[in-house]
């Protein structure tokens, strides 16, 4: 039993001949905000995919709250208290923002199929309560007024916020945010930083953050891991990482190709 909330040991995955992530040891303590950065193609999202159970690692182990989660189904991992957002937003596009949250809150129905068909009093009560809670989550990310808007039609920045709200609705202990600031301007970034800090402090949720906006990562993270070509390049507090020569080189070398 370790004192880490999340820990990977020798995490490795290969697709065909390509090694996307190699021998990664990654640790997150409860209550931290950890940044995961690196040039495009460094394997950051792949790490998230393995942690959430979508892609099985070729080698290595992943421990969440002290128990191994390699081979556990994604929905079971989620129910243990791990949630995430997606780099290329994956909302339930064609339904309302509110319904997006409602679905997530109701992922475990809490009543039987027969009760569902009969729509018993219990079902109706749970429904009403869930609706209320769903509004609270929208409120938290500042989307209450968009409750009835179709999720896919919201502006990009708001979709990212809705994804965060949806992830929070699973009541996670650990939240993985995959480029939450992508496509946002400075002002939006600032309010996102506030939001993430707010979530972290008020809800006591541990956060791992993949982000290209240096401001956002440096501002928020207690600790930063730098990946390059699937391998751990550096790790430490934001200041140490920023002045690390390997990191500077990796980013400069990639700089021109980066958008």
């Amino acid at each position: 039993m370790s004192d880490f909330l999340l820990e990977t040991k020798n995490l490795t995955v290969r697709f065909g001949g390509l090694t996307a992530v190699e021998g990664l040891d990654f640790q997150v303590k409860k209550g931290q905000i950890v940044g995961l950065i690196g040039p495009n193609g460094a394997g950051k999202t792949t790490v998230f995919n393995m942690i959430t159970g979508v892609i099985p690692p070729t080698e290595g182990e992943i421990f969440f709250k002290g128990s191994g989660i390699v081979g556990v189904r994604p929905d079971r991992i989620a129910r243990r208290g791990l949630s995430r957002t997606f780099q290329n937003i994956r909302l339930f596009e064609k339904i309302s923002a509110l319904e997006n949250i409602v679905i997530t809150l109701q992922r475990e129905p809490g009543y039987s199929l027969v009760e569902a068909f009969l729509r018993t009093k219990k079902v109706r009560e749970i429904d009403t309560e869930i609706q209320k809670r769903a509004y609270d989550y929208l409120e938290l990310v500042g989307l209450r007024e968009y409750a009835d808007s179709v999720a896919g039609s919201l502006p990009y920045g708001l979709q990212r916020r809705l994804e965060i709200a949806r992830a929070l609705a699973t009541e996670p202990e650990l939240l993985l945010l995959d480029e939450p600031a992508a496509g946002m301007n400075n002002e939006e970034c600032d309010s996102l930083i506030d939001l993430i800090r707010n979530i972290h402090e008020k809800k006591g949720i541990t956060i791992v953050l993949i982000e290209h906006h240096t401001d956002v990562v440096v501002n928020l993270s207690d600790e930063i891991y730098v990946l390059n070509l699937g391998k751990l390049l550096a790790h430490g507090d934001p200041h140490a990482v920023q002045t690390n020569e390997d990191v500077i080189r990796a980013y400069l070398g990639q700089g021109r190709k980066n958008k």
């Binding site: 995955v13 697709f15 065909g16 996307a20 999202t45 792949t46 995919n49 979508v54 892609i55 997606f86």
Partner: peptide
């Protein structure tokens, strides 16, 4: 996956 499953790529 069948006898010879197509290797999955990281398509997330």
């Amino acid at each position: 996956g069948g006898l010879l499953a197509k290797s999955k790529s990281d398509k997330l």
